[in-house]
Each structure stands twice: as structure tokens, then as C-alpha cells.
Design a protein around this nucleic acid. Structure first.
Lengths: 196, 196, 196, 196
DNA sequence: TATGAATGAGGATTCATTCAT
DNA sequence: TATGAATGAATCCTCATTCAT
């Protein structure tokens, strides 16, 4: 595959991703994607097999990158609190580059995962979950994190809050990913109640 | 409108709501709703004008109830921390009765609000936001909540975490709404880091 | 059939006739008729077998009355010019009582006549045509009407102009049927060109 | 738009126009049009937005042509009688090329004009009316046409008779448009009564 | 690579009609 | 007589996809 062709694919995926994120996968028509790209809908099929294969490619790319980030974080950090901080930060940072894919993943994964083709979504989600659970469990064992909290519940709270932020996080805005991650970590670690 | 007729409407709305929540509004076909109700798709139009009017009725009902709950909470409690606790608890509790509506609101509101008919969604969302912001600001002013946190950010974290829980919260499960609310409030107020 | 029941039928036929005339037979829904009558659509079926049977009854009534008028006119008048005048006048006068039926006959007969049930429409139309042709031919033979005109063409001109007037003729208006008939007969007999 | 594409549109409009004229706009289904064109009903939407846009295009085309003819007639003729003759002749001639559109205009304009989209129908009708009224009034003033006739009534008689002829006029028949126009003008100008 | 005509399945909705109450 | 729930067929239209050019 030539570089030009690869670029065109990436460009089209970017356009499709934005629309999928904005309007939802089902609600986005192939024609809308083509219109946004300035070509006719039939022409999209020179690049992709189907609408499904477009989301597929978008999601796979994002999940591969995220998994790699998480693995690197864990490989470089053994301290639970440092690891947690890094996981959160890395996740928020991914919104700068993969915002649309994250939104799609958040909104559509549950529906898509029902189809065999997207079975891998559940697998990857489980892998990512293991990363977080490992850190939380290790931290609890070491006495770094409170013992009276149910780890799975804590995980879900963290996961949801982090990712759902994609709905309002603006990569161009004044609040950067790092700053938001910091504020979030403060709440998460110390709570919102003033220290006595 | 007779009681029987009202019951049938409610029954059909329940069926539609479940499907909208599970598959998304756009992805749910009128035929699927009718099939689930054991009637023909055309027969649904004896009860409702359109698929849109079904979500409309579902969302209005939920939002009316939620607004009433919030107002009652604030009317009865002046202490910020008590009010926050009550808002969180009431929200989680609403998942027992309005789980589908909440899911629909979470997943579809952004898209629906673009249509004039659903303009009220943004208005109600703003009203609800004011409830939370009021409590948080009062608490910060009184020194109950940390001063170094941005209130709008805190609000979004709370809102998102609370509502996104509808994705995994199971009204029939072993963990009741109150218990989950309590755990969540612990994290939110004290943080996950063990006390020194 | 009781008198009250007969009245109700007539009332409902009047409502249906007005709508058929205004919107067209196909475009008028049974529900619209029922709404206009203040009952539910299903209730109409206590009075009539079908929507078709409603037009049927409307058209039969009108055509019976018209045929009777024409026959009486011809029975009472042997002079071609007097007969023509009377036919035109009687036709315009029928607009006062049968305006809707006339409009329906004008607009829908061609389509309806395709169905066996409405085969009689063509027959009655042919009967009525014979009335006019008889008068015109007799008049031409007697030298009362110009010999250089094709009778069938003249007939069609007369027929069309007379009946199409139902589109703008207003029974409540200042111009009565007789007056309009008189003006029309002037044009028809003397032409619009000023006498030299 | 390529020539081939334009041709296909015109072809499809011709097919649709014939059906609209024969069966009425409402009674003609999109599927019937497609069947007559040898394609599937959905395929029509590759060429036209909707069934409405098809009539729209048909009517606009016809009215534009007719208006242009009328204007040319009036620009070239100042004599009222000559102008009247030309208007009648031109109108009958338009049946050769625009028969279906005329039939549609006659049968559906009243209903269609109720929708905003077809508001222009009333405007064009008024423009055309002005052409005829101008000629008739000028002729009456000049003493060419009888003074005892109401011009608006005369106009309606002419208009209706001319256009309603589309119901029986056959472009392929032995009687050409010019001949019919001539006969019609004889009746209209001199009347059907033999000269004394 | 792209066009544009066409497919075929399926979408929401309408509507005449039926029938138990 | 009337209700109102339901039917079932049909309607207009949409949309992912194909394919000859």
C-alpha cells in the first residue's frame, strides 16, 4: 500500500471517526461520510469494505495505542500510586489524539461487541481492566490505598470518570489533559472534603 | 383517558424504553418495539404519534421526577455535605425505577437536543446543574470542601460518575443503590488514599 | 330504516361529500370524515360498508336527480333553443344542491369508472350526453344552430364549461345560478364579438 | 449535470407525468412510477428528492413555457381579437407537448397550492389571468367585444373550456390543435346560433 | 480512484377495515 | 350506535452496497 493511499485512508477514517463520535455509528450514513470527504458514497468502497470495517479500523488503532501506553506505564513504574497517576495521566492525554475513537468506544462498544466481528472489544477491555485492577490491588495490599473500598467498584468509578470526560474535554481548550488529570487525581486520592 | 388506556401506554413505554436503552434510539426499530409488545408495528401508532414522541414521553417523565427529588432534597437540607450526600443517594436510587430513562438520557441527549422538539433537554440539564453547583459552592465557601478544586470540574466528575454507573448498576443485584452511593461518597469525600 | 337513521346517513354523506370534493376521494381519509363528524373512524362502518360505498351513494343520488331533471326538461320542451336554455339552466341550478357531488363526478369519475362497481358512471354519462346531442342535432337540422360546427365538439365545449364552473361557483355568492346560466347562454348563442 | 443524466431525468419525469395525469398525484404510487420506468422504487430517489419534487419540476417546466408563449403573443399583437385568437391557439397547441402537465395542473393545483412549496402555482395562475383579462378588457373598451358581458365571467368560461379540453384532446387524433382552436373561436366569437 | 445509476432490504408511518366491548 | 384496540397491507423514503464506465 502506497504512502499516499495510506494517507487517504487515514484522512477518511478521521472524517468518519468524527461523525461516528458526533452522531453515533448507526445514525451516521455512509453518504454523510462521503459528503464530508467531498466524494460520492460509492467511492468510499474503494478504500473500505464496509461501514463496519471503518469503525473496526478506528477502534483497533486506538486500542492498540492505549494498550501499548498502559504496558509501558506499568513496565516503568512499580510504585502503585505513581502507576495510578501515570495511568490516569496517560488516559487523559490520549484524548488529545484519539478523542473520537474514545467517544465511539464509550458509546458503541456495548452494542458492537454483540457481533462476532467485534468480539475482541471485550477482550481488550478485560486486558485494560487487569492493568487497573493490578495497580489498585497492589496499592491496597501495600497499605497505600484504603482497605475499606471494593476494588472493582473503585475501578469502575475511575474508568467511567476518566473516559466519560471525553464528552466535555476540549483538546483546544485552556485546560490541558495534564491539568485535568492532576485535579482528578487530587479528588480521587484525597477527596473533596477539606483536610481537618 | 381511561385507566386501562393509561396502563397500556405505560406498559408500551416501558418496553420501548428498555429497547432504547439497550440498543440506542436510532438503532431500535418500531417493529422491534411492537414485536416485544406482541402487536403489529402499525398498532403502536394508535397509542403514540411517532417513535420520537415515545422517547419524549419517557425522558420528560424521568426528568420531572428527578427535578422534583432534587428540589425536595435542597428544600430539606441546608448543610452542604448533607445535601451532597442526599443528592448522590437520590440519584443512585433513581436508577432503581428509571434506569432505562437514565441510560437513554446519557446516551442520546446530546444528539436529540439538536432537534427543536428536544430543546428542553438542555434546559432541564442546566437546572439540575444549578442544584449541584449551588451545593458545591456553598460548601467551598463554608470551608467544608477543599478550596483548591475547580467547582465546575468537580461537578462534571460527580455527574459523570454517578450517571455512567447506570451502565453496570443492576437493580436486582446484591449491591443496592444506597450501598453504592455510600462507597462512592467515601471515595468522593475522603479519596482512595489511606489516611496517614 | 328509521327516519333518524336515514338523517344520520345523509348528514354523514354530506360531510364526506364536502371532503371528497375539497381534497379528492383518494386523498380524503376515513379518519378525516369521522373527525369532521365528531365520531371515531371505526364508527363510520356502522353506517357504511366502506369508503367506496360512500362515494357510490353520493354519486348515484346526484346522477339520479340530474337524469330526472334532464328528462323532464326534454319532455316539456320541443323547441331546440328553449331546450338548450333549460338544460343549461337546470345544470347550473343543480350546483346549488349538488355542488360537492358534481365536483366529485368531475374530478374522480374517470378514475372510478375503471372499477366494475362504478361501471354505471359511464352509462349514465352516455345517457346524459344523448340528451344534449339530441337537442343540438335537432337544432342544427332545423337551422337554429350553425351548420358549420361539429356537434360532438360543441357538446364537449358546453359540457365542460358548464360543469367546470363548479370550481368557482359559490351557491352563497351574489351571482345566482340563473344569472350565470343567462350570461353563459349569451356567450354560447351569440358569441362575445359585438354585433355589427 | 451531464446530458445523459438530464435525459434520464426528463424520461422519468415523462413517465411520472403521464401517471400523475391519468391517476392523480396522490393515487399514483412511487412504485408505479418506478415499475413503469423499469427500475426499483428506491432508485427513483437517486434522481429526485421526493414524489413532490417530481410534480414540482413538471409543473414549473410547463408554466414557464406557457408564460413565455403568452408573453410573446402579447408582445407581437396589439389587436384584441388577434391576441385572443393567438392566446387560444397557443393554449391548444401546448396540449401537444404538455398534455400531462396541463392535466395535472387542472386536477391537482387546487390541492397542491395549499402547501407552501406550491404557493407559486397561485402566483403564476394570477399572471396568466392578467394576460387574458388585459385582452378582454381592451377589446371591450375598443368595442370589439360585447359590452354586456362580465369580463371575469367570460375569462373563466374561456379558461375552463380551453384547459378542460385536455381531458379529451388527443394529440395523435385526426383533429389537430389548430382546428379545434378554430372551431372553439367560432363558438366563442360568433356563438352557436345561426346568423339571421 | 472516482462516478453515478441501480439494487434490495428495511425504515417509519398511514390507512381502510374489523371486532370485542 | 359508538368506542378503541388492533390488523395487515401499502406508502414514501433511506441506506449500505455493487458495478459498469
Amino acid at each position: 500500500m502506497g504512502a499516499a493511499r495510506k494517507d487517504r485512508r487515514a484522512e477518511l477514517l478521521g472524517i468518519a471517526g468524527r461523525l461516528f463520535a458526533e452522531r453515533g455509528f448507526v445514525a451516521t450514513t455512509v453518504r454523510e461520510i462521503a459528503d464530508a470527504a467531498g466524494i460520492l458514497s460509492g467511492s468510499l468502497y474503494h478504500h473500505f469494505d464496509s461501514k463496519e470495517s471503518m469503525v473496526d479500523e478506528i477502534l483497533r488503532g486506538f486500542l492498540d495505542r492505549l494498550r501499548a501506553s498502559y504496558e509501558q506505564v506499568l513496565a516503568e513504574r512499580s510504585d502503585p500510586r505513581a502507576a495510578l497517576t501515570a495511568l490516569v495521566t496517560v488516559s487523559f492525554e490520549s484524548m488529545d489524539t484519539d478523542g473520537d475513537a474514545i467517544a465511539i468506544f464509550q458509546n458503541e462498544a456495548a452494542h458492537l461487541a454483540q457481533f462476532e466481528r467485534f468480539g475482541y472489544l471485550a477482550e481488550v477491555a478485560a486486558e485494560l481492566e487487569r492493568c487497573w485492577l493490578g495497580v489498585l490491588e497492589r496499592g491496597q495490599r501495600d497499605g497505600v490505598f484504603r482497605a475499606d473500598l471494593r476494588v472493582p467498584l473503585v475501578y469502575r468509578f475511575i474508568r467511567d470518570t476518566v473516559w466519560v470526560a471525553v464528552r466535555w474535554y476540549d483538546p483546544e481548550g485552556t485546560l490541558g489533559a495534564e491539568e485535568i488529570a492532576a485535579q482528578y487525581l487530587t479528588i480521587l486520592c484525597q477527596g473533596i472534603v477539606a483536610q481537618r
